[in-house]
Simulated scan of single mutants.
Amino acid sequence: MSEYFNNIIYGVHSFVTGLKVTWSHFVNKKDLVATLQYPHEKWPIPERNIGFDHSEYNLIRSRLHVDIDDCISCMQCEKACPVDCIKIDAIKPSKDSNYDCGITSNDTQKKMIVSRFTIDMSECMYCNLCVYPCPEECIYMVGGPNDTKHQIDYEFSQYNRDGMIFDFADATDEMIRGAGGEKWLEQRDVQNNKLSDGSELLGIIPVSNPSISSEDIAKSAPLQEEAPNTSSAASTSDGELDIKSFN
């Protein structure tokens, strides 16, 4: 009997204790305890102390950035990427052309112009492997020791996946034509038209010079003839089934 009342007392005590905790949070409301309306509201960034200068070591793995004016189109970063999120197209002017591709900040003469340099950050695994082989150090993670080049940008969420694809190439169509990239422009326009029409999503593959026409297919189609019945069942006058075969 005493155990029964002890359980009741314990339950009431636990209930009152929980109400006290809830009421204390309700009355003593503090700042930054409620859910913020991200991305319109953001938590403040706390000060960090890693024991030594930030410029000595890059602890920050954030968004990739490319100084396209220093890119020499060596494709080393594209080859080093383990997930193929970097796509580069470059156009090399012909030898008889006097087109000047420019020089980098390290006084390196560029031999090609970059017509496409995209990085899909939705596929990036932040391994930083694309940074090390770059001879001009034009691709890097923003922030950290590169804060003087580009401030940290670790909040770059998008409502659409296409917003995660960053294009750093700044070559205009006129510059590409001057370098002899008319064919590349035609291929780009064809691809853009396919994407806009949705032909790739529908699986439509244009076929040029088909070897078999629709008329040939219709002529060669086998005729479907109805096969005669090889057997039938008939009822005799005695009520028994008489199986007859017809050849």
Rank of each mutant, 00 (worst) to 15 (best):
A221M: 06
D96H: 15
G163K: 08
Y126E: 02
E78R: 08
S235D: 09
N247S: 11
G144M: 05
M125C: 09
Q109P: 02
E41Y: 04
T172L: 12
C101H: 00
C127L: 06
D89R: 11
E226V: 02
T17L: 06
F5V: 07
E240V: 03
P228R: 04
W23C: 13
Y10T: 15
S245T: 15
S62N: 11
D31S: 15
Y140S: 01
V207P: 00
T104W: 11
R188N: 06
G203L: 02
P210F: 01
E136G: 00
D170L: 05
M125I: 13
F156T: 09
F52S: 12
S122W: 07
V142S: 03
D147A: 12
P210T: 00
D153Q: 14
N58Y: 04
I204Q: 08
T118L: 00
M75V: 03
C134N: 01
P228W: 06
G144T: 07
I86E: 01
C101F: 00
H13A: 12
S105I: 05
D242Y: 10
A34D: 07
T35L: 06
R61M: 11
Y4Q: 05
L195T: 09
A169K: 04
Y159S: 11
R63H: 06
M121R: 10
N229S: 05
Q151W: 03
F156D: 11
T148Y: 15
D69R: 07
D89F: 02
C130K: 01
R177P: 04
P39W: 04
I88Q: 02
I204P: 00
R161C: 07
F156Q: 15
S73K: 01
V21K: 14
T118N: 12
K79V: 11
A227L: 05
A169P: 04
Q151E: 12
S55R: 15
L129M: 09
V190Q: 13
E136N: 03
Q76C: 06
E56V: 03
E215I: 09
E136T: 00
P206R: 14
S199D: 09
D173T: 08
Q76S: 08
T104R: 01
K219C: 04
A234S: 13
I217Q: 13
N193A: 14
A171H: 01
S62M: 01
N247D: 10
D238S: 13
P82L: 03
I68C: 04
D107R: 05
A218L: 15
M164S: 15
I50A: 08
F246T: 13
Y10M: 12
D173R: 14
C138I: 01
W23Y: 13
S231F: 06
G143L: 01
P135K: 09
M121G: 02
